[in-house]
Design a binder for these strands. Structure first.
Lengths: 293, 293
DNA sequence: CATCTCCATATTTGGACGTA
DNA sequence: TACGTCCAAATATGGAGATG
């Protein structure tokens, strides 16, 4: 397979192989627990840069660990639930998402549940932000739609269920888009459930404002598919300028996530509380469905 | 192809994919001029480490460049001729080796030629050192032989020529294995040719002392095949302890090479000198053949 | 120049086993 | 636990041609 196409269409080769390499790295990171970082410069002349992909952790942390003394810090295990890139990557590999974990759904721990719900809301927020950017970036949406359909079919050939959003909506409105996490600090479990409902509500309305779909059935291909890369990003603090199109998006949300997590951990813990209610389960299913597209 | 084999035989998966990933990176580095570095930790529990592969440059230089300001230093272009790992990688990809370059063979520049010859001698030295280590490491050599034959056939199905070493040998003996580069500082072009012959001689005798082959025909599978990895190595200055078997060899020869190069550059330049003589060409063919195995 | 699409073909990988 | 081997299924990649 090698040898022939020497330095002529090197650019093309690089493009294709970049995707391939990225794919491999992603898979290896998610399938096993290895932490991998890839640093690279484009082959071409100018445009000095280094796009880099990472699996679970961030490239910077791996590089740092590498330089320091080979102790890549213990995996955070659970606090990257809101890393959208990872969710997408897992989805691509057909791996289960954290919110699909049975143990979580049956959990009776307020903290755990609130944390989960919050993470989910965070993911939804990001998803919508990204979709907004996407819509702004490419108005035509031509072939994208087709690709989306194919991807969908390939990923879940049998999922034809029309999952509707919960019809009941609370009238409470929570501004979870502002960066003020103080609003979450004194929340209690019951409130969280409402928060969840609110999120569903907000999410729904946001979508209907973006694209005027009727009832937003998830089996219908989205007009603004999220064809974003899963785990390649450019670190903003390194002055990267190279952008392989969709491959250089930086969702940079880590800090916000961490703060949110901290805020949520202060929720009171009543051991006798019930597990996620039906709406919550619908919610996670919904998220799953959404990422399926 | 994904999804199923979850965390059960993760170890096996990691092993296989590591090779795959490494292969991809190598190819991408050699096919295009991209400089790629991969930092990774093994998935398993203990054994904290980070094996890493690199293409053309060293991982450290890329990491440094990455941290500094995205200017991976211009490729050295020509001074990595003696990077055995790169030669192996190129061979694996069927790419031509630097000493097979027509321009070099027809060159009339003493410096260039002496440099080339010296690089070649250096490579030979390394090859023999590695073979020695190999022989010491695995006395049985069972299935290895078979694999070697296959690889050979695959790489050069038609190369059946029996390339013999030049039968003429000089009586000059140069201790090119010592780390004293001073001995090269005042060498002149004629001397270099002799040096080359000496190298051939030394090489031959070294081989016959290692394994008692008869005349060392290169078409015959070597008893101690060099199944070493091409461009994965563990940086000794980073306290790496992880070793994926053959994947963590560090040929650490950069410094020596650089010094040798510097020494050679002081050779006088007589523009009217002839190009590489027949022996030299045989020499390069020999090298090619050797790496072919 | 960087990507994308299509398609045929070369590689890679998973699964099941066997070994150090 | 880490690899090596075999085979079939799953992917990746090159070539050719088009687009922004």
């Amino acid at each position: 397979m090698e040898r022939i196409t020497k330095r002529e269409s090197a650019a093309t080769t690089f493009t294709k192989r970049s995707y391939g390499l990225h794919s491999k790295v992603s898979q290896l990171c998610l399938l096993t627990d290895a932490q991998i970082a890839v640093l690279a410069t484009p082959p071409s002349s100018h445009s000095n840069v280094s796009f880099f992909s990472f699996g679970h952790s961030s490239v910077d942390s791996i590089v740092t660990a590498f330089l320091t003394g080979e102790r890549p810090a213990v995996r955070e295990e659970i606090d990257d639930h809101e890393a959208f890139g990872i969710c997408l990557a897992r989805k691509e590999l057909g791996l289960p998402q954290w919110w699909e974990d049975d143990a979580l759904l049956k959990s009776k721990s307020p903290q755990e549940l609130s944390h989960a719900i919050n993470s989910m809301s965070s993911l939804l927020t990001k998803i919508n932000e990204l979709r907004a950017e996407d819509a702004e970036a490419e108005p035509p949406l031509k072939k994208q739609k087709k690709k989306n359909e194919e991807t969908m079919k390939k990923t879940e050939p049998t999922v034809e269920q029309t999952l509707l959003l919960p019809s009941d909506s609370s009238d409470k409105t929570l501004d979870y888009n502002n960066n003020n996490n103080d609003s979450l600090e004194e929340i209690d479990f019951d409130q969280l459930i409402d928060l969840d409902l609110d999120l569903d509500f907000d999410f729904e309305s946001m979508n209907s404002s973006d694209n005027n779909d009727e009832t937003m059935k998830m089996t219908e291909p989205l007009d603004q598919p999220l064809l974003l890369p899963y785990d390649i990003c450019a670190s903003p603090d390194n002055n990267n300028t190279y952008s392989t199109g969709e491959m250089s998006l930086d969702y940079g949300i880590d800090k916000q996530l961490q703060e949110t997590t901290i805020a949520m951990s202060s929720v009171a813990c009543d051991d006798g509380v019930s597990a996620l209610n039906e709406d919550d389960i619908n919610f996670s299913d919904y998220l799953t469905q959404f990422l399926q597209s």
